[in-house]
Structures are given as C-alpha cells and as structure tokens.
C-alpha cells in the first residue's frame, strides 16, 4: 500500500455565496521515499492540494466535499482537528515559499526549532536545544551552536529556508511538502537547497511533494509529476517520458514556453511557444468540458461538450485530453 493515497478528492471554496471546486476529482498516490512534483500556473490548485493534505484549508471558506486522503491507512479527510495537529509536524510537514514571512521575527531560530520538538516529542528545554543544534548542522548552517541564538533577520534568504527545512524535519516526518521552496531564492542558493533536500531524503527516507512551476526543477528533483490545470489533473506519470513526449497540450506548452538552457547553445533562437490567454476564473471551475479548451490548438466540439477522461499510456503515464494520442 502506498504511503499516501488520495482518491477522488474534491475541495470546494465558498466565495461570495458561490461554490467553486478548486480541486475537482483528483486522485494520486505517493510511495515512501519518493519525490512527486505538482506543476502548473498559479491558480491551478497546486497549493490547495497541499493544504488539503495538511488539513489547513482556509477556515469556513474551504472544505473537503468528497473523496479520501488515506495516510498510512487513516483517512485524513475525516480526522479530527486534534488528530490533525498530531499529524502535522510529526508525520507530515510543510515548507513554504517565503522564508522571510514564515518565520516568527521576534523569536530566535533556536526557540522556533525547539518549539516543534517540545510540542510534538515532549522533549525538555535542554534536550530540545541540543537537538536543534544538531538539526541546524544537518541543514548545513556553519557554526550552528552560535547561530542558534540568531533572529531570522540576521540570516540570509537561503539560510532562513534552511531553518524552515530544519523545523519541518525536526520530528522526522514521513512526508515533506515543499511549496515552491526556492522561488524567492537565487539559482546558486536554489541548487544548494535542492542538494540538501536530496541528501536528507536519502538519509531519512522522507517522501517529498514538490510544488513548483519550473519544469527544470521537476526534471532535477522528481521521479513522478502531476500537471494541474484549473483544479484538475491534466497529466500524470514518470518525469522523463513526460518531458520527452508530453501527452497533454498544456504540459507541452508549459515545457515549450520557457527558454531553457541547452547543452550546446546555437545561433538560432526560435520564437517561444505562447499559451494564449490565462487560467479560467473560479466561476468556470467544475464545468463538464475541457477547461483548457479555450487556450488549446487541438480544440474540437467534443472538448466543449464533455470533460475529458484519462487516456492511459505505458508506465503509468496518463493524460486527461480527448486528443492525447495526437499530441
């Protein structure tokens, strides 16, 4: 059995009296020690999926309307708030995009790392402090015994993200959700953070869910990927075959619209592929048709009449497109 099994998940947001399914019938599974990546533009439901797993959907606005999230056999969609608090941090942790705003500015980083350990593992102040120094060392902050008394403002962006990772890994969770962990960081720092995540995964066997919009990052970090569009799964499968031959026009566009660095640069510069238009508004979510149709070059009447079913390809590669064979 997989570590995490999400089945037919539907998350609804209620905004100004209108109900919009921001996650619409999404299923996937995550094995222990695996890295799975969620890709898509902003507003496609990547972060919402993460928040649903963490039980952190916005209060009174968002709710899980249908489906299950089975973690180690337990359905998190039905778990009580108390149980979710035990799971968060202990079993599933999350790191966020902005290392500047997700740390508390008035506590030292040592206090913030210790807090997790004392709260979840009932360690005493001294033991928690010692463990915090160890953790800072593990995320490769030089001179951890001295830096532990620093405040967040005394650290660089990359160091703050390392502290966030230390906090997230403090209780040795089985799943680490990283929501755009390097978007705010420079490339050389991003490379350091990716190396760190890879090494930690090797050492601890933590499964990683990486949310990103950067196909390059997916190619470097993940084994499998899920491309999200307008709250639905557009494409899903192992990373290499998808990048080599995407079976959904949206995935194909996402890869082709970014100017990538290639092994040998040549004089020619092709025009970038544009995906015209933008992601549909929440009002259109949930309609029984292909939501990508308005931006798609392969659109046919069938796309407008009916929501595409998943077409299966080899090695667990699947695409929700009526024209997947033709892509």
């Amino acid at each position: 059995m997989a570590l995490l099994e999400v089945e037919n998940l539907r998350v609804e947001l209620t905004l100004r009296g209108n109900i919009a399914p921001v996650i619409d019938d999404v299923s996937f599974s995550l094995e222990a020690g695996e890295t799975l990546s969620f890709v898509g533009e902003s507003g496609c439901g990547k972060s919402m999926t993460a928040l649903a797993i963490m039980g952190l959907l916005p209060d009174k606005v968002g709710r899980i309307a249908a489906g299950s999230i089975r973690f180690d056999g337990e359905d998190l969609a039905k778990a009580s708030d108390k149980r979710m608090r035990e799971i968060r941090g202990n079993e599933i942790s999350m790191i966020f995009q902005e290392p500047m705003t997700s740390l508390n500015p008035v506590y030292t980083i040592g206090e913030q790392i210790s807090e997790v350990l004392r709260r979840h593992q009932n360690l005493g102040a001294k033991a928690a402090h010692a463990k915090a120094v160890e953790l800072l060392d593990a995320v490769r902050i030089p001179n951890p015994a001295a830096r532990i008394n620093d405040y967040p403002f005394q650290m660089s962006g990359g160091q703050r993200q390392r502290v966030m990772i230390a906090i997230a890994l403090a209780c040795e969770p089985k799943i680490l959700i990283a929501d755009e962990p390097t978007t705010a960081l420079d490339v050389t720092v991003q490379a350091q953070i990716f190396d760190l995540l890879r090494d930690l995964r090797k050492q601890t066997g933590t499964a990683i869910i990486l949310i990103t919009h950067d196909m390059g990052a997916v190619a470097e970090m993940a084994e499998r990927m899920i491309v999200m569009y307008a709250g639905r799964k557009a494409e899903d499968g192992p990373v290499e075959p998808i990048i080599a031959h995407a079976r959904h026009p949206y995935t194909k566009g996402l890869i082709a619209c970014v100017p990538h660095l290639h092994a040998e640069l040549t004089e020619e510069r092709e025009r970038l592929v544009e995906i015209g238009g933008i992601v549909p508004g929440l009002a259109e979510f949930g309609a029984n048709r292909c939501l990508f149709a308005s931006r798609c070059g392969l659109r046919s009447q069938k796309c407008l009449d009916q929501r595409p079913q998943e077409q299966k390809f080899e090695a667990g590669h699947a695409s929700a497109c009526w024209h997947a064979e033709a892509v």
Partner: peptide, 26 residues
C-alpha cells in the same frame, strides 16, 4: 560557471554533461 551549472534544465543531455560546481556560503 557556477551560476550556469546551478540552473536546473529539462535537457537531459545538459543535465548529464553538466558538473555541478558548488559555491558554498554567502
């Protein structure tokens, strides 16, 4: 060199040819 080697790429050939040059610290 370090800057270029840090950029993640979808090009498999480049990923395999590229040796990551780490520049530690700030």
């Amino acid at each position: 060199k370090a800057l270029l080697s840090a950029v993640p790429s979808v090009d498999k050939e480049r990923r395999e040819a590229q040796k990551r040059i780490l520049i530690p610290g700030d």
